[in-house]
């Protein structure tokens, strides 16, 4: 399958819409967002902006297929001219693309209890076949670069502070090389120094030609890394 236009884009979203039908509320429809179109090239960061409730997080969740798209296309270029429409692919295919191509740093850390920070961060690498020892070594390096104290490596991140959890979430999202990385407020609960480290990490990912779509709660931080901006209006 070929991308319809703008072949240099890694991600091309066309007329994407999402509405929710509440069957147990008499079939009431809630509009998430409508008519969202943008494209992102490799090494670019597109920032989604707009007021609270405009549907920024919903756009990310729809690209990741946590939300089922109501209408529109989401073309991802998987390299060598292979483009797939994430809005139309099967669940099994989406599972494969998530493992190999798409990362998602969600707003809140959702992990299993009882698993150490090191294992949580190393898991995406192990999933794609990296030797466990190598994956753990890489996870430790990444955690050190994000200033997570070594004494916390063997502890479940669910016991960490909000800022520490956020850094674990980011480390887990970026450890395995992906073509597309979605980030929902990656610096929201971080102090200036930690946020600076995350922004440096995002710059490094851009140099690695990773395509990034992100939401920032802080405009000053956004302008430091964003190449383009897509503004969503309330109930557009």
């Amino acid at each position: 399958m070929n991308m319809p236009t703008q072949n240099s884009s890694r991600l091309q979203v066309e007329n994407l819409c999402k509405s929710f039908t509440l069957h147990n509320r008499g079939g009431r429809k809630i509009n998430g967002f409508a008519g969202v179109s943008f494209s992102v090239k490799p090494g670019e960061l597109l920032a989604l902006t707009g007021p609270s409730g405009a549907g920024k997080s919903s756009v990310l969740k729809t690209i990741y297929r946590t939300y089922t798209p109501s209408r529109g296309t989401i073309y991802l270029d998987r390299g060598q001219g292979r483009a797939v429409d994430l809005a139309a692919c099967s669940e099994s295919e989406m599972l494969c693309y998530r493992r190999s191509d798409i990362g998602f740093v969600t707003q809140f850390l959702k992990i299993l209890p009882r698993i150490s920070a090191l294992e949580v961060v190393a898991a995406p690498l192990i999933d794609i076949g990296t030797d466990k020892k190598d994956a753990v070594t890489r996870a430790a390096q990444l955690l050190r670069s994000l200033h997570i104290r070594e004494e916390l490596f063997s502890v479940s991140p669910l016991t960490f502070s909000g800022g520490e959890q956020q850094r674990i979430n980011i480390a887990r999202g970026v450890i395995a090389p992906k073509k597309l990385l979605l980030l929902d407020e990656p610096t929201a609960s971080l102090d200036e120094e930690s946020a600076g480290r995350v922004l440096t990490l995002l710059h490094e990912l851009k140099k690695q030609k990773i395509c990034l779509v992100a939401i920032f709660h802080d405009r000053d931080r956004m302008v430091q890394v964003a190449d383009n901006e897509y503004h969503l209006e309330q109930n557009n």
Binding site: R65, Y67, E91
Partner: peptide
Amino acid sequence: ITVVMRNGSIVEYGLTDQILEDPQHGYTQ
């Protein structure tokens, strides 16, 4: 991936996070 069954039939099939966060069928909701 999760399948939702009722009365012997499959009423919904989807990625597990989709089933839990954006269920489509009234029964799944």
